[in-house]
Structures are given as C-alpha cells and as structure tokens.
Design a protein around this nucleic acid. Sequence first.
DNA 1: ATGTTATGACCCC
DNA 2: TGGGGTCCCTAACA
Length: 471
Amino acid sequence: MFAALLKDGYSQLSAYERKRLKNITENAKFFAALKLHESAARLNQIATKRRPHVTKRAKPKKAEDETVRRRSMRLQRVEPSGIPTLEGSAQPEAEEYPQVPAGPLPMVPEGEMENSKLAEDLLATWMRISEMKADDTEKRTRDMKRYQESLNSMVLSEDNIKKVVKYRVCSMAIHPSESIIFVAAGDKSGQIGLWNVNCKSEGAHVFVPHNYLVSCMHFSPFNPAHLLSLSSDTLRCGDVTRAVFDEICRSEENFSSFDFLEDTASTAIVGHWDGNVAIVDRRTPGTSSELSADIGFKRTRTVHVHPVNKQYFIAAGSVDVCIYDVRYLKSNRNKPVSSLKGHTKSVASAYFSPVTGNRVVTVCADDKLRVYDTTSLSTVAVLSTISHNSNTGRWLTRFRAIWDPKQEDCFVVGSMAQPRQIEVFQDTGELLHSFYNLDYLGSVCSINVVHPTQNILVGGNSSGRLHVFKE
DNA sequence: ATGTTATGACCCC
DNA sequence: TGGGGTCCCTAACA
C-alpha cells in the first residue's frame, strides 16, 4: 500500500503539499485581516443561545414586524441599516448576526485555530484523490438480480456513522475517488462538513463558507478538487489546491439549486427561489449571471440538466414541473418543451435518470412519488405512481428522490417508516430494497447520495449525522 | 385552499 | 440541575 504510494508519485504529492502549505500561510494572514474567527465565534455563541421558552409559535409583534413578515430569514437578517423601517426597533439578534464576508474565503476549519493538523491532512487527502485519474469504467446498468445482490451486500457499521455538521443536513456530495470515501455535507446554517470515511484520525472537519442553508452541492465532474456549493445568496467553489472558497456569484435573489450545463462544468444553471433561472459562467467570477430567465414559476426548488442532451433541463417548484431548452431561453415569456402534470401539492425535487435521461422521478407533498417516461421530451407520460409518506413535518429536510448513478432505472429516497430506513425503488414502482439497521440507524435520512461507480450510499439526517452503507 | 414557514421535548451525563 | 445532544409530530399565516 505504502509502496504503491511511493511508486505512484510520492514526490509529486510532497510538491503539492508544499504548494498547499504556502497557500495556507498566505491565507492565514488574509484570515486574520478579515477577523473571520471572531465572527465565527459569535455565530457559535448566537446559534447556541436558547430562545425564550414558548409553547406556541411567537406572534408577530404587529406593526413593527409587519413589514418583514413575508421576507425570508435571509432578508430579515440583512443589515438593519438596509431596512429603514426597522430603525430603532428592538432587533438585537439581527444586529449581532455575523456575516461570512463576500469574496474569496480561506479554507480554514471552524474552531480549530490551534490544532488544525488533522484538518490539514484531510484537505491533503482531498487534493491527492482529486489528482488521480478516475477509472473510466462505464456506468453500466446491471440486471436487476445482480443489482439487488449488490444492494444486499451494503451494510452500515458503527465506524461509518459520524456527525459532520451541527444542524440538519440540507445537501450532500460524494467525491468520485475509488480509493477513499470522501463526503461533503451542507447544513441549515451554512456549514460544510468534510469527512474522510476511511480514516478515523483525519475524521471530519467543518468549514463555514456560507451564511445560510446550503441547498445544493456538487464536486466538479471535470475536476473533483473543486466543490461547488450553493446557498441563498452565493454560489461558491471550494478549491482545495488553493485552499480557498471562491465566490462565483452573489445575488439578492434566493438561490435554490444548480446544475452543470456541460462536462467541463464551466457553466451552470441556477434556480432562484422566486421562480427565475439563471445561467452562470464560472470563468468570469464576480460578474452577475449571463442570463436571467423567467420561466413562469412561482418557485423554483430544483433544477437538473439532461444527462445526454444537455441543452435540456428540468425545473421543479411549487406544483410546476417543466422541461426547458436552454438554447431558447430569453429573459421572459419562456415556454416549456413539456410539462410533467399531475402534482397536486408542492414538489420537492425532479431529476432525470442518470444514463439516458429517459426517466424523471419527482417527490411531491401529496405523498406520491411519480416516475415519468421522458424518452420523448415532447410527449411525456406518467409511468408509475408510488404512495410514499413525504410528510417530513416541521424539523426535517424534505425528501428528494435521487437516481443511483450506476443504475439507470432505480432511485433512492428517504422514508418516515419504522424502523428507520432508506428505500430503493425501480422505475416500475416496485420497492427493491430497504436499507436499515436496527442498532445504528435510528433516524430519518432525508438527504442521500450514491457513489458514481462504487456500491456506497450515504444518508444524512436532521442532526448533521451521516450514515455510510457499503460493501 | 394551498404553500410556506417556524424550533420543542426528551434523554443522559 | 442543566446544558448539550438528539430526535422529529403540526399549526399559524399569507
């Protein structure tokens, strides 16, 4: 093992290490200048501060709160000076609320100013596994019997459970490496936890590149040393080779999700909570989006690009689920290529199947999972409807059904069922498998991610804990 | 009517 | 006792 490492390019590795250390040193100065650690400490303090004991939902304080009633938490926390109507009103928390500053942020772990050696090792691992040429094994869809066997072989052990972020998991991403299981989880408060599942000593470390809920994350398929993360006000790219979280774009609108438009991952489509979608080019950081298009949605919760014909993308939000052609997007009055009908309540997610894009699975608050046949994008039809309790209630992240990237016709979704489990369905609507473990899985995993080439499933719950099922 | 948004109760050391 | 960790139902409001 170690011999292989030596042979593989030990000298190269140390060169990277040197480069990294240099970056870290430079960043430390930057960090000090920003006094980010002070803000971070205050964030911690405020975040842990208990609110007064109330049995019912606090009633709005009439007139003074009225103006902000309909705004998002993000907007409510905007600097008080920005909202003249709040001037002089008692909103101490809003004033104290610390902000992660705009622009590039050093990739320094939270609350580990002194002993950050282990976090250094973790980042070095991320960089090393990103240098390795990915095995170009084709994504192959196995026959159902073999697939089921592989699912049966995946188990959860005590070692493969870890709390990696403080609050509930809102998004996850898994590194494509086949030698190390490396996972990123984003939480409600803007934290991103990175975890090397294979190495107990390196463990998990937390970074805070965002102020608000991290709704969507992807490692760049072109360069997995880049981790893109989206929060309501920023899209960032964590670049481990430079030890920086760059800012790709920032907006006053609420970002909700994004996806890459091509294999080079240089442009992305970004969904806005208020309905619009935008095209963003990563190569021109700091500039605003190239195009903002009104697709006629009240909300846009998820966007996903077709895996083969990348000019198409699917958007979901409120009760609308539509497919659009990005080539014909204009600023307003966009007509969808097709519309996926039948949802009677708000839709939590809609994703294309991974290899052909011939299927779409949606999760809806009407307690149904729907699979659509999208072989012909102009004539989309429902293929199957599955009853599934999606009432996650007040404290849980809503379920999103995600396809297994290795298996064209099967998807994974969290469940409210007891004992707690993560379910795998076939596009026909058949329940193929339930991942559960009476000893170690005692909570609902709302967010799940499957490794692109290996039999690995990670489930994230609403207290920041990840569970890794593997062979 | 419908979609969105909040944060309490319990257990354990 | 009390604070931190952990889990997750529903109900007001626009």
